[in-house]
Amino acid sequence: MIDKNILINEFNFENDIIYLNCGSLGRMPKSSANLLNQYLQDEIRCPTNQYNTERLRNTYYKLKIEMSNLLGVNDSNLAYTQSTNIGIGTLLTAFTWNKGDKILIGDNEYSDGILPFYALKLKFGVDIIELNSENLIDEINKNMDEKVKLIFFSHIEYNTGVMHDLKKIRESINIGKNTKILVDGAQAVGQVNVQLDSVDFYVFPFHKWMLGPMGTGMIYIKSTESLKPIILSTLGLDYTDENKRVLRKDARLIENSSFNFWLFATILNNIMLFNKIGLENIYEHIRTSASYFISQLKSKDLVFINDCYYKNGMAFIELNEERCSNKLIEELENNNIYARTIPDTNKLRFCFHIYNTKEQIDVLVNNLINYREE
């Protein structure tokens, strides 16, 4: 049972905004916003005093420990990054690429996620092979050979809501000895329970389902053995007993040292809040909200909707060809309801989180019932 008082204190339910787009950018809890403001005020007074420096250092280590518990991994396997896109680019620059190396990529990927791979194609002559994500395991096995260096796909696809079973994929593919699996977790972490023992690399942001600010993210790295990064900082530096410089062998190897850790402090606060509410309670609320929305919508049998469905906390509506998704989004926004369209389709996506209520969903459904395209 979720303590409603916590939600009332953290999210303004009395305002007239119905926010359903945390798959793009989540709503930050009040306590995290207040914490960020306090940290910035402290930094204005004296950025590098002992108090601020020690608090920053504690944030660095404590957040990794909390995320390692959430993801079921060791904290030494986690590195900070600013976004999924930057995390992917950082990892790709750490590989040694040769002409003819192959990368297998699902065909339902977000553009920010796949653009770094096509830059590799231009620079190094690697071959990019797009797979039919509906049959991902069969497609991987069909295209697997000794040249395949990397397999990349989204844990949860942003444009369909389909969640791929990481363990099943690892166990069902004829993976090459030197082939690594890199997963985009942007739509998974914070929406569903994520365990990472089946992948080599996993990149995700904190500004979506984790409800943090933009410019925050993390990378899981099972092993740094194959990595030779060119983005380095003192965080990735270690010393031998003879006081000689050497590179670390854990995930810190690829970290940049110039992060704003006051932003990451809000994530640590969010995790404390999520633990208080109960992670399973949050996941269940997300699922049941999306399910309730679709069940209510289907009961109305609206003629301008070709299809509607939900996957976990993401609900999708496909309009018939006589209607325009962009115009519907515009009308919803005029009524203070925020969702998003899916590029190159006539679909809308609605993402539900802990701050969404049944009353808000009923308002959304009534808006769709009353929708008229001029």
Rank of each mutant, 00 (worst) to 15 (best):
N193T: 09
T357P: 05
Y110S: 10
S289H: 05
D16R: 09
M218P: 10
L71K: 08
E359Q: 09
G161Q: 03
H155L: 02
L364H: 03
L150N: 08
N260R: 15
K298D: 14
Y309S: 07
S325R: 08
I140H: 10
N141F: 13
D107G: 14
S154C: 08
D307G: 01
G125E: 09
A79W: 11
Y292N: 11
L120F: 03
A186E: 01
M210W: 04
V363P: 01
F13W: 11
D184Y: 12
V203P: 00
E322Q: 15
N320P: 04
Q41L: 03
K276C: 04
N9A: 13
L7I: 03
N12M: 06
L7N: 09
N367L: 00
K121M: 09
N306W: 07
H285S: 15
T93E: 14
L70A: 08
E255T: 02
V192G: 00
D3V: 04
F352D: 12
M1F: 06
Y80V: 01
E54L: 09
F117G: 02
K244M: 14
W97L: 01
F259M: 12
V148G: 00
T357K: 11
G176D: 01
N260T: 08
K167H: 11
E374V: 02
A290I: 13
T93N: 15
D184H: 08
T59K: 05
R248C: 02
D200L: 02
Q38K: 13
N21E: 14
S83K: 08
V365T: 11
L91S: 04
S32C: 09
P343L: 06
D238R: 09
L70Q: 10
I103L: 12
Y239L: 10
L332T: 07
M218T: 00
N269S: 14
K30M: 10
F293Y: 13
H155R: 01
N15D: 14
N334E: 04
K4M: 04
G212Q: 06
S154W: 10
V189E: 04
V363N: 00
Y355T: 02
L237H: 07
N336F: 15
Y202A: 03
F201W: 12
W97S: 01
V162W: 12
Y310E: 15
F261S: 01
E359C: 01
N5E: 14
